[in-house]
Design a protein around this nucleic acid. Sequence first.
DNA 1: GTTCACTATTTTGCATTCATTTTTTGTCAT
DNA 2: ATGACAAAAAATGAATGCAAAATAGTGAAC
Lengths: 245, 245
Amino acid sequence: MKSTIPDTGVPIAPPAANGGDRQEASLHGEILLRLRDYVVEGNIPEGARVPERQLCEMFGISRTPLREALKVLAAEGLIELLPNRGARVRQLGQRDLEELFDVMAGLESLAGRLACETITDAEITAIEQLHYEMYGHYLHRDMHGYFQANQRIHESIVAAARNETLKTAYANFAGRIRRVRYSANFARKRQRWAEAMREHEAILDALRRRAASELSDILFQHLRNKRAAAIEHLAEPEENAPASP
Amino acid sequence: MKSTIPDTGVPIAPPAANGGDRQEASLHGEILLRLRDYVVEGNIPEGARVPERQLCEMFGISRTPLREALKVLAAEGLIELLPNRGARVRQLGQRDLEELFDVMAGLESLAGRLACETITDAEITAIEQLHYEMYGHYLHRDMHGYFQANQRIHESIVAAARNETLKTAYANFAGRIRRVRYSANFARKRQRWAEAMREHEAILDALRRRAASELSDILFQHLRNKRAAAIEHLAEPEENAPASP
DNA sequence: GTTCACTATTTTGCATTCATTTTTTGTCAT
DNA sequence: ATGACAAAAAATGAATGCAAAATAGTGAAC
């Protein structure tokens, strides 16, 4: 086994030739989007080198636009550049995750604060709707549905902040921990699940009252709890984990 | 007059061949640092095209590493890429500034919250020291000194948060509005100056008590007030501004 | 004198090429 | 077999080359 990328047998196989029907004017832009997804989706193992040549063949492009995309991804913190040694997928240690979760907490906290200033009743109703939907998934133990509804609620709050800069930054950080968030299916812990539901109710309550700083506190604490659950999960990786060394 | 870059007469004149004695392994990395400074310092007028060829000559490199740096700066939001038309320095409208200030407010608010968890008495003392220094500049009407002390205080709070990710993000956003911050020497308004001093005292007070959410609120409001002053200043640009149209 | 059309020049985006550095492979001695 | 060393292969980083697009320049028509 040589390649770090799973070889499908087909030499040239773009993972999403234009799946999301998003169209970028420049080749560089398109490659950036596709490569980011490719990395975020975990197609290259953590800490592994990013094989330029192989990716070029896969995308059917030359190295120039790919390398430009790599530089951007490095600036975003998704990969890291080693001098004369190419790029490797950034390995997130526990400390990195703690930091990232805290920054996310700060951004969501800010989003809530700003949302209180301009959110409409209709928007709140929409979020309530999502909340009930999420509650349904909770009752049915549908973790995937729960997760999605949960994510949409948080995205709605960010959207209600009406700050494109914030939205972009939020998306950026969310991308960095996306992989971990999925793997950290903390939902197995029923207690945390119920707790999260209660917290979400508090969020909605504060939002209805437009209590900016209160909502800010609640959101921060909510994310902090998520962080604790995710980190805790990381510590005891899997049920059937063999003793390491 | 053809060039958008002020021609010093000397054709090849690197602005900082290695001024900050920072050394990057890759040419790309060095160019990124130098070009970022070059743009942030306002050497290219807002909205003007970024002249690749000229910059290449100036830095004495080929277009490849320069273009890589341009892609990164675009991702950072400092410049924007036009399809088949190169890059231009991003023009910040009033709305952009409001958004940026709010995000900065959120990050500082977060920094304060986190700082309360781990800040040492010694660190608080150091910030108090800066505060007194700033107060001295205030009394002497030394705007430049005041500004610097002020900035160092905010940086100290961010540092006390012990979160490298936050620190990096903060520096990134700070860079985007750096130019505007300088030009917006709101300090001419004595009233705002005095107000800022009072706010800083409240910040120190909350910090001493490790009152996390209170400090978070104060910092947010403090930045909001700064934002108001900066925007207000933008509206009435200069004392001797000729009628525009 | 202004406006439009057409050509020439420049600029941009990407591919290709080249010099180094790193990594792998191969050989030989221990 | 194992390790050290040397050569070969591959990769990286940056420069150069080339086709397409955009801009500037020129002149004719109104």
